[in-house]
Amino acid sequence: MVDFLDEMEACVPALRRYARALTHNLDHADDLVQDCLERAISRRSLFRPRGPLRPWLFTILTNLHRNARRAERRRGERVDLNTIADLGTPAPQPGHMALVELARHIETLPLDQKEALLLVTLEGLAYQEAADILQIPVGTLMSRLGRARTTLRQLTGATNEPRLRTVK
């Protein structure tokens, strides 16, 4: 039990980061992480698959976020893109606008592409691990990843990277 909780505690920073990137809202992100941890604790004995704890926690968090999004869409609320200005980003700096813009673009990605992109890029997970978390085949993960990156390149390339616009 204590081992389990310690192991879980070690995963909390990564979960918070992933949740922040998913929600673009610090409070919502921490709510999500808290829900995820509580669920994991209360279902530990019943549902925990064999194997490492981390992917399981990420799967729970992903599913909770999807459910919340679905509920939000039913209620007709829209995520306010302006809230991203409140992100825990470093103080304004030359690249700050680029960051905000990228955040905006990431926010426009379909959720499944966004999840794949965040897990691989932020968490540096192996494709297989990310695919397991999202419960999809590796091929599907890669195609989502590819589409996400192409879309982002097209969106950001137009303003920030003119010299690379011709690529591909």
Binding site: P13, R16, R17, P90, A98, L102, T121
Partner: peptide, 26 residues
């Protein structure tokens, strides 16, 4: 792009975790 993303969502590292996210407490 990937570097920008990592800059956008910096690793939380050793920043203090709010008490409500402490697994032991939960």
């Amino acid at each position: 792009q990937a570097d920008t993303m990592r800059a956008l969502y910096p690793a939380i590292g050793n920043a203090p975790v709010p008490a409500r996210l402490d697994p032991h407490r939960l």
